[in-house]
Simulated assay, not measured.
Amino acid sequence: MIPEHVLAALDQQLAPVDAARLAAYPGEPPTRQPVHTCYVPADAVVPGLVASWGATALAALDEHGLPDLGLDADLVADVLPRVRRKLAVEPVEDLRVDAEDGYRGSPEVEDDDVRAAAAVLAAEPALPPFLGIRAKSLEEPTRRRGVRSLDLFLTGLAGAGRERAVVTLPKVTAVEQVTAFLPVLYALQQTSGLALDLELQVETPQAVLGADGTATLARMLHAGAGRVTGLHYGTYDYSASLGIAAAHQASDHPAADAAKQAMQVAVAGTGARAVDGSTNVLPVGSTAEVHAGWRLHAGLVRRALERGFYQGWDLHPAQLVTRYVATYAFFRAALPAAAARLTAYVSRVEGGVLDEPATARALATVVLRGLDCGALDVAEVESATGLDRTALDALAGRRR
């Protein structure tokens, strides 16, 4: 037997390492992750915005019908009623008011536009579960303008019944920008009374690989002192910064995959999420053009889900159709196998697949994601798995 003093010394030596790892990698958060982030320019925020996005999506579906999206036809028929309900009740899960690239107002009117957007949203009777603002970057020419817009918007939301909001920092290029922004984030939280989460947009090569050859993403994330909840891929700025021709800039380009895989590794175990980018090919125009846009978007959404990216950007109301069709089809197709394997794992019944705890966590997590977005119902999940929400949370390692 190994002497006790040797084991005690081992524990003592590794205790600080254990504590540091748990602090840096706390695991899966208990919070729901939205399936998308919808970006709306500050000057386009109008009363009834969210409901109008849902109505526009439904109108596009009614007018053009759904083309063959490369998905199982029976599965699509199964999810369509659910998608229609979602578009009528909760079409937008995460809304980001944009005062950066999508905003075309001049500096002279930005104050008014940002204040007006906040006032409109503060008066809305029902808002998405997640809400925030993207301001201009922390580069010197736009730094103070960006912080001012954050201040005006978040203060304008104060007293509107919101408890939490998201701040999205675009074009982050240096770890020091994240560190320097934390006191500003705290000040914004104090003045607005909102709990603020921070997202970083990966839109530059420097965000992925620093001048010293180190992987910058992980350093940026951990410099956020637990405040960073997501890394968002910026499809077009990142592609352009690498010199990729405009015709080939897309979220499924090999260069995009390389950046997003680095994002995935950086966020793993931290509680932050890696988020896919957008496509600017919109489903608008003739039926043929709408169908082409839907096929492209559905394929990108499906591809992202298969690679473990459960959230992406949507830029137009009609994209909500294929966002939910592809997402719901993915989770409903995953349920039978996940349920069978979870049941076998919990009951310790040997079957054709021998799963380990890590795989059980992944299986439970995919079921929980399906529940969160409305692709799955509580009753059918409990019937299929024999597990309630609490048990699934425990298997997924979601801390409460």
Rank of each mutant, 00 (worst) to 15 (best):
residue 281 V to A: 13
residue 26 P to C: 01
residue 355 D to P: 00
residue 127 L to T: 02
residue 187 A to Q: 13
residue 343 T to C: 12
residue 61 L to Q: 05
residue 122 A to I: 00
residue 190 Q to E: 15
residue 185 L to K: 05
residue 368 L to T: 03
residue 174 A to Y: 03
residue 395 L to E: 13
residue 61 L to K: 09
residue 303 R to K: 07
residue 75 L to A: 12
residue 254 P to H: 10
residue 84 R to H: 04
residue 50 V to L: 11
residue 344 A to Y: 02
residue 288 A to D: 13
residue 352 G to Q: 14
residue 200 L to S: 09
residue 350 E to S: 12
residue 228 V to Y: 12
residue 89 V to K: 06
residue 284 V to N: 13
residue 101 D to N: 08
residue 219 R to M: 00
residue 384 A to Q: 03
residue 337 A to I: 13
residue 101 D to L: 05
residue 105 G to E: 02
residue 82 R to N: 00
residue 125 P to S: 05
residue 150 L to D: 09
residue 371 L to Y: 07
residue 257 D to I: 09
residue 324 Y to W: 14
residue 304 A to Y: 11
residue 62 D to A: 14
residue 67 P to I: 14
residue 250 A to L: 04
residue 36 H to S: 14
residue 347 S to A: 15
residue 231 L to S: 11
residue 66 L to R: 07
residue 199 E to R: 13
residue 284 V to Y: 15
residue 400 R to I: 12
residue 173 T to Q: 14
residue 66 L to P: 00
residue 332 R to M: 03
residue 292 A to I: 01
residue 86 K to T: 10
residue 390 T to R: 07
residue 390 T to V: 02
residue 291 H to A: 05
residue 344 A to F: 00
residue 318 A to L: 09
residue 71 L to N: 02
residue 35 V to Q: 08
residue 119 A to R: 00
residue 103 Y to T: 02
residue 172 V to F: 11
residue 290 V to N: 10
